[in-house]
C-alpha cells in the first residue's frame, strides 16, 4: 500500500491493526488474498535484462513444446494456462493437497510447487499423456472398472502419484500403496475404494 490510511480519523487504523495482528502471531494480513506470499503471480511479469531466457522447450507427454515462461512460473500454471493441459488440477496452490501431481522423469511431483524452468530437459507426464493409441493406461482402466473416485477433482493427482509409485514398487501391499499416495487429499473421502481401484491398477500393470 503506497499511502497509509488516515490514522487520525480511525481509532485503530488498518495498518495498526495489522501490526497488532502480526505481533499477536495470528495468521492474517492484507496480503492473505495474494497468489504467493511474495505478492507475485505468474502472469505478465516483465523479465529483467539479466533474467533467464523466457522462450524454452519442454518435453511434455512425449511432445516438444515451445513455451514462453517467466522465471517464477510454476509448472502447474504453465501446463494449465499455456499448454492447455487442464487435467492437472490446482487444489491448494501450495503443496498441501496433491491435486496437481505430475511425473517428472517418472517421479511424482507437485506441479504447483515446481518452477517450470526447473523441468527443462526433463520428461514431464500429465494425466493427458497416460493413455496411448486410444487405450487407457492400466491404472486409468482400473479406476473406471472399480469406479474409484467420486467428484474426481483429486483423481488426476492420485492416478499420477500411483503410476509413479508403481514404477518403484510394482507389487505393493495396500498399506505400502497407501503410504505411496498419502500426499494426495480427497474430500469425498472414500479412500477405501480409491485404494482398491489403484491396487487393481497395479495388478493390470503387472499383467501388461
Amino acid at each position: 500500500m503506497d499511502q497509509p490510511p488516515s490514522e487520525a480519523r480511525s481509532g485503530v487504523s488498518r495498518r495498526a491493526f495489522i501490526k497488532g495482528v502480526i505481533a499477536s502471531g495470528a495468521v492474517a494480513s492484507s496480503a492473505a488474498y495474494l497468489f504467493r506470499g511474495s505478492g507475485e503471480t505468474i502472469f505478465g511479469q516483465a523479465s529483467a535484462p539479466e533474467s533467464v531466457e523466457r522462450l524454452i522447450t519442454l518435453n511434455v507427454n512425449g511432445q516438444m513444446r515451445r513455451v514462453d515462461v517467466i522465471k517464477q512460473e510454476t509448472l502447474a500454471m504453465t501446463l494449465r494456462y499455456k499448454l492447455g493441459l487442464t487435467g492437472t488440477k490446482i487444489g491448494c496452490d501450495r503443496a498441501e493437497c496433491g491435486a496437481c501431481t505430475v511425473l517428472v522423469d517418472d517421479v511424482p511431483h507437485y506441479s504447483c510447487s515446481m518452477l517450470t524452468h526447473s523441468v527443462r530437459g526433463r520428461r514431464v507426464q500429465t494425466i493427458e499423456g497416460l493413455a496411448s493409441g486410444g487405450q487407457l493406461h492400466p491404472v486409468q482402466q482400473a479406476v473406471v472398472d472399480e469406479q474409484g473416485f467420486q467428484c474426481a477433482f483429486c483423481m488426476p493427482g492420485f492416478v499420477m502419484a500411483a503410476v509413479g509409485f508403481f514404477k518403484t514398487n510394482p507389487n505393493p501391499t495396500r498399506q505400502e500403496l497407501a503410504h505411496g499416495i498419502s500426499g494426495n487429499l480427497c474430500r469425498c473421502q472414500d479412500y477405501d475404494k480409491i485404494l482398491t481401484s489403484l491396487m487393481r491398477g497395479g495388478e493390470y500393470m503387472r499383467r501388461t
Binding site: I127, E128, A131, V144, A152
Partner: peptide
C-alpha cells in the same frame, strides 16, 4: 468416468 480419468472433464 472416462472423461474424468483422462483429464478431459
Amino acid at each position: 468416468l472416462v472423461a474424468k480419468v483422462t483429464g478431459r472433464a
